[in-house]
Design a protein around this nucleic acid. Structure first.
Lengths: 118, 118
DNA sequence: ACAACAATTAAACATATGTTTAATTATTTG
DNA sequence: CAAATAATTAAACATATGTTTAATTGTTGT
């Protein structure tokens, strides 16, 4: 709980304690949201939640160049949303098997399909 | 379900049908994520999920100028995540009472506090 | 009508971001 | 070892974004 300083105006309907995640955790949550805030990357993430694929096939599926895709994959990986493994010449990517990844995937689907998610 | 064209490589472990929300709905979901992809805006949204406040008080709570705040509020409003009402000289903002807003708030808290959200 | 306060808008600016093109690294195969 | 394929990295570019400052609009009270 965060106890905020006195406010310029007192309208009598603001709780003295407003809970808010600490700055660092808030930033990490924001980083996850930001990654999925690009339609291409969100679609990529959704694909990677359903299959494991090499970069060339992902390029074809996404209609996007390999370098562009590599860039997005690295970002998703840096936040722990996807993982990769090399097999011969190819590197396979898939969504990470973590609570965060599952949560964000479900949230994305619920947002897109407008199902009630409460 | 989306039936994708043949891929450059056949590794034998990719489903022929990969479901993905239609472009427009995907874009709307991405827009919501993008809005919460900024730490300041995410914190603002969390505050507005707990109280209704005027811009000056939100400025004080956020440690941010009124114009900067107005800018963020307009974006959150344009996506339907917050609503406003004027009362005299002041305009009060609060989180929208919609499934999307509730879903995103819960997701943000779960991400930040690292609770298992599956 | 005028002054004071609240909020928004507009312009300007620096920074961040997504994509392209070209170059580089890694791995397999002839 | 050289050629071919897969992936990444680097440089360059245009565009988008967050914030500041200054100007404008809206509302209340004298």
């Amino acid at each position: 709980m965060i106890n905020h300083p006195p406010l310029p105006h007192d309208h009598g309907h603001t709780p003295q304690d407003l809970s808010c995640p600490p700055a660092q955790q808030l930033q990490e949550a924001a980083d996850c949201f930001r990654l999925l805030g690009d339609a291409s990357r969100l679609r990529l993430f959704c694909l990677l939640c359903q299959c494991e694929e090499c970069v060339i096939n992902l390029s074809a599926l996404m209609g996007m160049s390999s370098p562009a895709l590599s860039h997005h994959l690295r970002q998703l990986k840096s936040c722990g949303l996807v993982v990769s493994r090399r097999e011969g010449k190819e590197v396979y990517y898939r969504a990470a098997d973590t609570p965060q990844a599952r949560l964000l995937h479900q949230t994305a689907l619920q947002l897109a399909y407008a199902e009630d998610g409460t």
